[in-house]
C-alpha cells in the first residue's frame, strides 16, 4: 500500500518534474522539497577532516534541516561496492557516512537507512569498508541490498536505452534520498561520481554494461526519484586503477568534498578536479543534453570553503 502510494505520488511528481524541466526551472523544483531554497548550486570544501568538511558544507547549504524534516525517513547510498579498507578510497569514507547519519538524526529523521548493492560479497564489503560500524555508531540502520526481492521494477519514461530498472525499495519508499559517492577513476566510464554511484541502487547492472553503459547511466539520472542531496567524498580520491584500485599507492589525500543537489553539476565539477572537461565524459554530456542538469559551471552559484 505504501508502495502504491509512492507510485501514485511519484507519477505526479514525475509530471511535475518533466514540466519543470521543460521550463528550464529545475532549480526551483528542488526549492520546493525544502523550506528554504538551497542557497548555492555547489558547495566545494577543502582542507578538513571528512566529518568537519561535511559539517561546514551542509551548514553553508542551509543546514541539514532544509533537507530532512522531523519524522522523515532517510536513505543514504554510499559506495560500498568493494571489500577493501577505507584507505583504498574505493568505498566512501566511513566518517562521512557516519556524520551524515548523525546530522539526519539531529535534524529529526525518524530513521536513517544505509545500503549498497555491493559488487564484492556484501557482508565483507559492509564490514571491511568500516561503513557498517560507522552507521551503527551514528545511530542509523545498515540494510542489505544483495537479494533481488528488495528491488521493485519501475519505468524510466524518458530513458533512451534504459526504459525499466529494478530499484531498491528503500530508494522508492524513503522520504529523503542522499547520494554519497566517493571520488574515483573508472576503467571504462573514466570517472565514477554521483550518477555512476546510482548503479548501486538497481539490481541488474549487467544490462547497463551490455546496453551502452554511458547512456544507461544518463538514463537512470532521469528516473523521477532523484537524490535530494549529493555529497561527493573526495577526502581520499582514487586516482588510477579505479573503481576498485590495486593498492593505497593509487590514492591521494585530496581532503575535499563537493555538495550539490544536482548530480550533473556535481559530476561536472568533479571531472574538472580530475583535469577532464565534463563533456569528454560521455554520460555527463548525455545527462546534460537530456537536461538532467547542466555541466556548464560558468553561471552557477558556487560556494568555496577553505578550512
Amino acid at each position: 500500500m505504501k508502495r502504491r502510494d509512492f507510485f501514485r505520488n511519484s507519477i505526479g511528481a514525475g509530471i511535475a518534474t518533466g514540466a519543470a524541466l521543460h521550463l528550464g526551472g529545475y532549480k526551483r523544483l528542488w526549492a520546493t522539497s525544502g523550506s528554504n531554497a538551497a542557497p548555492y548550486d555547489l558547495i566545494a570544501v577543502r582542507g578538513g577532516e571528512p566529518d568537519v568538511m561535511f559539517d561546514r558544507g551542509i551548514e553553508a547549504f542551509g543546514g541539514m534541516k532544509s533537507f530532512v524534516k522531523a519524522g522523515q525517513t532517510v536513505v543514504i547510498k554510499p559506495n560500498i561496492g568493494w571489500d577493501v579498507i577505507p584507505e583504498r578510497a574505493a568505498d566512501t569514507n566511513p566518517l562521512v557516512v557516519k556524520r551524515i547519519v548523525e546530522q539526519c538524526l539531529a535534524a529529526g529523521a525518524r530513521q536513517v537507512y544505509v545500503f549498497d548493492n555491493t559488487i564484492d560479497e556484501m557482508t565483507r564489503c559492509y564490514r571491511n569498508s568500516g561503513i557498517e560500524k560507522a552507521v551503527k555508531d551514528g545511530g542509523g540502520k545498515m540494510v542489505p541490498g544483495h537479494i533481488e526481492s528488495y528491488y521493485q521494477e519501475v519505468p524510466i519514461p524518458n530513458g533512451e536505452r534504459l526504459k525499466r530498472a529494478k530499484v531498491h525499495e528503500l530508494i522508492l519508499e524513503s522520504d529523503v534520498f542522499i547520494n554519497v559517492p566517493v571520488m574515483k577513476t573508472h576503467s571504462s566510464t573514466r570517472l565514477s561520481l554521483a550518477m555512476k554511484n546510482l548503479m548501486g541502487v538497481v539490481w541488474d547492472r549487467r544490462f547497463w554494461h551490455a546496453n551502452d553503459l554511458h547512456q544507461c547511466i544518463a538514463d537512470f539520472a532521469m528516473f523521477e526519484k532523484k537524490p535530494h542531496l549529493n555529497v561527493l567524498d573526495a577526502y581520499n580520491a582514487l586516482m588510477r586503477n579505479g573503481p576498485r584500485g590495486v593498492s593505497t599507492s593509487d590514492v591521494t589525500n585530496m581532503k575535499s568534498m563537493l555538495i550539490a543537489t544536482n548530480m550533473v553539476v556535481l559530476d561536472a565539477a568533479a571531472a574538472k578536479m580530475f583535469g577532464h572537461e565534463p563533456e569528454t565524459i560521455r554520460y555527463i554530456r548525455r545527462a546534460d543534453e537530456m537536461k538532467v542538469g547542466t555541466m556548464n559551471l560558468d553561471n552557477l552559484n558556487i560556494h568555496r570553503i577553505q578550512i
Binding site: I119, H186, S187, S188, T189, R205, R206, H209, A210, N211, D212, L213, H214, Q215, P243, R244, R282
Partner: peptide, 10 residues
C-alpha cells in the same frame, strides 16, 4: 556494439 562496457576490468 561499439559502446563502452569494461565490467571485467572494473
Amino acid at each position: 556494439d561499439k559502446t563502452d562496457c569494461g565490467a571485467c576490468s572494473e
